[in-house]
Nucleic acid binder design. Structure first.
Length: 682
DNA sequence: AACGGCATCTTTTTT
DNA sequence: AGATGCCGTT
């Protein structure tokens, strides 16, 4: 018991002890959020004696879930009934496995990813852009709209069309027993909503619920949580409204801001002690985020003391910027800083390009995080499609993807003919080839192709048989039968692709070792829900988007592209407050030093454009000269000054605070102490 | 069936 | 600019 509280500060301890009722923990950046969640779980189990299996902790990423699980299991003695700690989507998957029969569906469904979704849509529709339909369908599902609702609601003809595609898409998923990402949440909600008894028992099973990164939840996830709280209201959510940066993906910042209205009787705790960044970094981050209106209000308090001032790199263009940054990083490395302690962040991925050049010239190794993800690589998708067709012969998409990989002389024309014939007899392509005699096939496609197709499906059947008998040998037989490594033979990136394939084979073997009695479909579902594994530790600096940096920390942070139009990014549907939060998230990744860079012009989208310095410099109190003490001495008693929040006031006293001057200012009768850099003289 | 040329698009990204 | 996707040619 004592041990749990040893490492916690006062507010963390209080949050941990508040086990009953709705709890909102506002956890600022670097305030020990994970420690608090894990300790709370340990407190529930070890101190209150609640069976771990009666708790539910949900996260957004597998990485977060994994870290928490490891730390929680360390603190819990009896783990024979472990706590359920997983992503929202994994929870949905587990729940559907047990309950989807209530929707008259079989629980051997397959989860499809965004790419499959788009392929299905493309097959159905022709005119309207696929990405638009995909995102609209996602929106419908998250608003619990059926295709019928969507149709009735549509005012424009285009949207009626989209609703029709949605209807066909749903029919397709059902026919093929497929489930998309949104379904994992939406169907789970639907089941709980339509079956009050099920909601009751589920809620009773999970007596204590915790949600990580609550600011990233959407409307539907909130509704799901309300269902899970049918029989109690022991819901503890942890998050930071200032770090909500996924609004464009449907995250609803109101969920965290109005949590106490959704769940009555909420106890709120603020974790404001920051254990990550040096004081000057926090000062800048706090100043920036204060300009947001829709926020609960929270100020990070530095516990790591004074440090280097935030520095600014001012360049003429992106080439000069990349030179300067490379030089500065070189200096850091020469002084003994480890490369992995340095990261360069940007709002838009394309900005990495110019920096890469500078780093290459200077001979600095770097690692790009994000970019193309492992499971999105063509060679990996090929392997996955092979496994799919082997698990489900009727998966036409996978069939078509792999039928000519490696090249077997089966081109588009032949496949189209076969597909058409298959459709006419309402069977899948596979089924059609199987049931049609060789002679009949030869009337459709040329002789050679007909026999190739026959061999192909025989091979698939053969490997499928191996898969059911022994998953252990499966992957080797797969490679031996189809020679998948030949797919990219002769291409300049062949070696890299084969390396990736080998890594995938390794992952498969690991899976078989870990769960020998599981089938291929379980492997596939596991894969679909997986995001890219964390890159291996190496001796190189990191480069990534600000979004990708959330949750991470580095000793030295460089942020490039602090210009109007890049950060804040300005465009269709952009939200200045969310841009400011992005700035805040990026600043608070830094532990020791923070360097902000902007350029006067950039080459972008095929042309050079002039750029203005980001307004965030001013908002963060980094206006020209504000860091220089000399300028602040210009203040004298009696000066009239203006503050962003408090308005106009008169200086009544001047004192020194660290490296800066602190002014005592009389704002309409109320005297306040304010750092000189936060006001401007009138 | 395979290749090459033309048009189009271009924020962030997890599951 | 550069990547991607579609279409027409060989």
């Amino acid at each position: 018991m004592e041990k749990i509280f040893e490492k916690l500060n006062e507010s963390q301890s209080q949050a941990v002890k508040q086990s009953e009722g709705p709890v909102l923990i506002l956890a600022g950046a670097g305030s020990g959020k994970t420690t608090t969640i894990v300790s709370r779980l340990a407190y529930l189990v070890e101190v209150l004696g609640i069976p771990a299996s009666n708790t539910l902790t949900l996260t957004f990423t597998n990485k977060a879930a994994k870290e928490m699980r490891e730390r929680a299991l360390d603190m819990i003695k009896d783990i024979s009934y472990p706590p359920l700690l997983c992503t929202f989507h994994k929870f949905g998957l587990l729940f559907l496995k047990f309950n989807i029969h209530l929707l008259n569906r079989q629980n051997n469904f397959v989860v499809i990813d965004t790419d499959d979704k788009k392929r299905i849509i493309k097959k159905i529709n022709s005119e309207i852009p696929t990405p638009l339909i995909a995102s609209e369908i996602s929106r419908y599902k998250n608003s619990l709209l059926t295709p019928d609702d969507a149709y009735k609601q549509a005012e424009l003809f285009n949207y009626q069309q989209i609703a029709k595609v949605y209807e066909e898409y749903e029919a397709y998923l059902r026919e093929n027993n497929l489930v998309d990402f949104d379904d994992l949440i939406a169907l789970t909600y639907k089941l709980l909503d339509e079956n009050p008894k099920l909601a009751e028992t589920t809620s009773q099973k999970y007596q204590y619920i915790m949600i990580d990164e609550y600011q990233d939840t959407n409307e539907l996830q909130l509704k799901l949580l309300q269902k899970l709280c049918t029989s109690h209201n022991n819901l503890c959510v942890v998050g930071d409204d200032d770090q909500s940066i996924y609004g464009w993906r449907g995250a609803h910042i109101r969920n965290i801001i109005e949590f106490d209205q959704d769940f009555k009787g909420t106890s709120t705790f603020k974790l404001e002690n920051n254990y990550r960044s040096k004081e000057p970094i926090l000062k800048v981050a706090n100043a920036l985020i204060e300009h947001n209106r829709s926020r609960l209000g929270k100020k990070l308090i530095a516990t790591r003391g004074a440090g280097e001032d935030v520095s600014i790199i001012n360049s003429h263009d992106e080439n000069e910027e990349s030179r300067k940054i490379a030089q500065k990083i070189k200096k850091l490395l020469d002084s003994g800083v480890r490369a992995n302690d340095i990261a360069i962040l940007y709002r838009v991925n394309v900005l990495s390009r110019s920096i890469e050049e500078g780093l290459n010239r200077t001979g600095i190794a770097y690692k790009l995080v994000g970019g193309l993800r492992f499971y999105d690589r063509a060679e990996i998708k090929d392997l996955i499609s092979y496994i799919r067709i082997i698990t489900n012969f009727h998966d036409d998409f996978s069939f078509k993807r792999v039928v000519n990989k490696p090249k077997r002389g089966l081109g588009k024309a032949s496949i189209e003919k076969i597909e058409l014939a298959a459709h006419a007899s309402s069977s899948s392509i596979y089924e059609y080839i199987k049931k049609t005699s060789l002679a009949d096939l030869e009337t459709l496609v040329r002789k050679k192709n007909a026999s190739t197709l026959k061999t192909f499906i025989k091979d698939i059947e053969k490997v499928s048989k191996v898969a059911t008998e022994s998953t252990y040998n499966f992957i080797d037989v797969l490679e031996e039968t189809f020679h998948l490594k030949n797919i990219y033979a002769g291409m300049q990136d062949e070696a890299e692709r084969i390396l990736n394939m080998d890594e995938f084979y390794g992952l498969f073997r690991d899976f078989v070792k870990k769960s020998p009695e599981s089938g291929l479909d379980e492997f596939l579902n596991e894969l679909t829900l997986q995001s890219e594994q964390d890159q291996v530790e190496g001796e190189s600096i990191y480069m990534m988007s600000i979004h990708a940096s959330k949750g991470l920390e580095f000793e030295h942070i460089f942020i490039i592209g602090l210009e109007e139009g890049f950060l804040p990014l300005i465009g269709d549907g952009s939200d200045l407050e969310e841009e400011r939060r992005l700035g805040y998230v990026s600043f608070t990744r830094a532990k020791e030093t923070l360097t902000l860079s902007h350029a006067g012009s950039r080459f972008y989208k095929g042309r050079r454009s002039d750029l203005q310095k980001s307004r965030f410099f001013n908002e963060a109190g980094l206006c020209e000269g504000s860091l220089k003490v000399e300028k602040n001495t210009a203040f004298k008693k009696g000066d009239l000054v203006r503050h962003k929040i408090f308005g106009t006031g008169r200086v009544t006293g001047i004192s020194k605070s660290g490296r800066e001057f602190k002014l005592n200012i009389n704002f309409a009768g109320t005297k306040r102490d304010i750092l000189a850099s936060f006001v401007e003289r009138l």
